[in-house]
Amino acid sequence: MTEAIQQFFATLPARAPEVLRGPVGGTLRIDLSDGHRTEHWIVRMRPGTAEVSQGPEHADAVWYCGVDTFERLVTGRTQAIAALFRNESTYSGNVVVFLAFRRFLPSPPSTRDPREVAREHARWTR
């Protein structure tokens, strides 16, 4: 597993209070394959909390992804829904769990919050 992926999973619990604000809950198993072996990551989400563990446990949803693709996801170089549409990953189960989890994934490095762009535009037009 790459360092970026390890760091991503290590930071999930600390980031959960700001990411998981709404009434969302569920368990997501992320199966990461490098071609020869598959690692199973379990993310249990509840409002304001996330627990991460490893193992092939039962989950509400399963996301299968290659290590290279997942590294691009956790570094913001690609988007989760785009990876699904391009068949770079597959997902089965409760889609609400996926929608909640993808909020942990970063935006592309050059992306700016549209509210901040609007504030700057308002300052320029005064």
Rank of each mutant, 00 (worst) to 15 (best):
A122F: 09
A100P: 00
V24F: 01
R77C: 01
D113C: 08
L99G: 10
L84Y: 03
R119F: 09
T27N: 02
R86S: 14
R77N: 13
E18D: 15
S110M: 10
I5P: 03
W41C: 02
P56L: 06
E3W: 06
I30T: 10
R119V: 12
V19M: 07
P17R: 03
P47S: 11
A14R: 08
E116K: 09
A14M: 08
A50M: 10
S53Q: 11
Q6V: 08
S107K: 07
E3D: 15
A118S: 09
H40T: 03
A82F: 02
G26V: 08
R29W: 01
V95T: 07
D31K: 10
I5G: 05
A16F: 05
G48M: 13
S53A: 14
G93Y: 02
T75D: 04
V67S: 14
L73P: 01
H40V: 03
E120A: 11
D34E: 10
A100K: 01
E88I: 02
T111I: 01
F9C: 05
E120C: 05
V43C: 07
Y64E: 15
W63Y: 12
S107E: 13
P106F: 09
V97P: 01
D31Y: 00
S89D: 05
Q6I: 06
Y91V: 06
R29F: 01
P56T: 00
I5S: 06
E39S: 12
I42E: 03
S89A: 15
W63C: 07
E3R: 13
P17N: 13
E116F: 07
A4T: 08
R77V: 07
S53W: 09
T78I: 13
A83F: 00
L105H: 05
L84G: 11
L105P: 04
V95S: 03
P114L: 10
V24C: 07
G76F: 02
P13E: 07
L73N: 00
V95G: 00
A100V: 00
R15Q: 13
P109Q: 08
G25M: 05
S89T: 14
V43S: 02
M1C: 04
A80M: 11
Q54C: 07
Q79R: 10
D34M: 11
F70K: 00
V43N: 03
V67A: 14
N94Y: 02
F85Y: 09
V52K: 05
H58A: 15
L99N: 11
R46K: 15
W63E: 05
A61L: 06
S107N: 11
F9M: 05
D113A: 08
F85T: 13
R86N: 14
E71M: 04
S89N: 09
A122Q: 11
F9H: 02
S92K: 13
T49Y: 06
F98W: 09
F98K: 02
A118R: 12
G26T: 12
R102Q: 15
L28W: 08
V74D: 01
V52P: 04
P56K: 12
M45P: 02
T125Y: 03
G48I: 09
I30Y: 00
I42Q: 09
G93M: 04
V52F: 08
L28D: 06
C65R: 01
A50S: 05
T49W: 13
E18G: 10
E71N: 14
E88Y: 04
T75E: 04
T11V: 05
